[in-house]
Simulated assay, not measured.
Amino acid sequence: MDGLARTHLTDGLDALQRRYGGLSGAELLRPLVRDEFRGRIALVSSFGTEAAVLLAMAAEVDPGIPVIFLDTGKLFGETLRYRDTLIKRLGLTDVRTIEPDPAELKAADPEGLLWQSSPDACCHVRKTIPLDRALRGFDAWITGRKRFQASTRAALDAVEQDDDGRFKVNPLATWSRDRIQAEFDRRDLPRHPLEADGFLSIGCMPCTDRVAPGQDPRSGRWAGQDKTECGIHLSAVPRTVSFI
Score class of each variant (00 low, 15 high):
2 D>R: 10
17 Q>V: 15
71 D>S: 11
228 T>C: 03
208 T>M: 02
149 Q>R: 08
67 V>Y: 15
147 R>Y: 10
24 S>C: 12
23 L>D: 09
48 G>S: 04
65 I>F: 11
52 A>S: 06
78 E>A: 15
215 Q>S: 09
230 C>P: 13
211 V>A: 09
28 L>T: 01
70 L>G: 05
203 G>P: 04
95 V>Q: 04
68 I>N: 13
47 F>H: 06
182 A>E: 14
155 A>S: 13
75 L>F: 09
111 E>V: 06
198 G>F: 07
9 L>V: 05
122 C>Q: 01
29 L>K: 02
105 L>K: 13
195 E>P: 07
201 S>L: 08
55 L>W: 02
80 L>R: 14
85 T>Q: 11
158 A>W: 05
153 R>M: 02
204 C>H: 04
43 L>N: 10
140 A>V: 00
129 I>D: 01
168 K>V: 13
53 V>Q: 05
160 E>Y: 03
129 I>V: 15
113 L>R: 11
33 V>E: 01
30 R>M: 00
82 Y>W: 13
197 D>C: 09
143 T>D: 08
114 L>S: 07
11 D>G: 13
128 T>K: 12
162 D>L: 12
103 A>N: 04
196 A>E: 15
38 R>G: 13
176 S>E: 07
119 P>S: 01
58 A>F: 05
58 A>E: 06
226 D>C: 07
173 A>C: 11
209 D>Y: 12
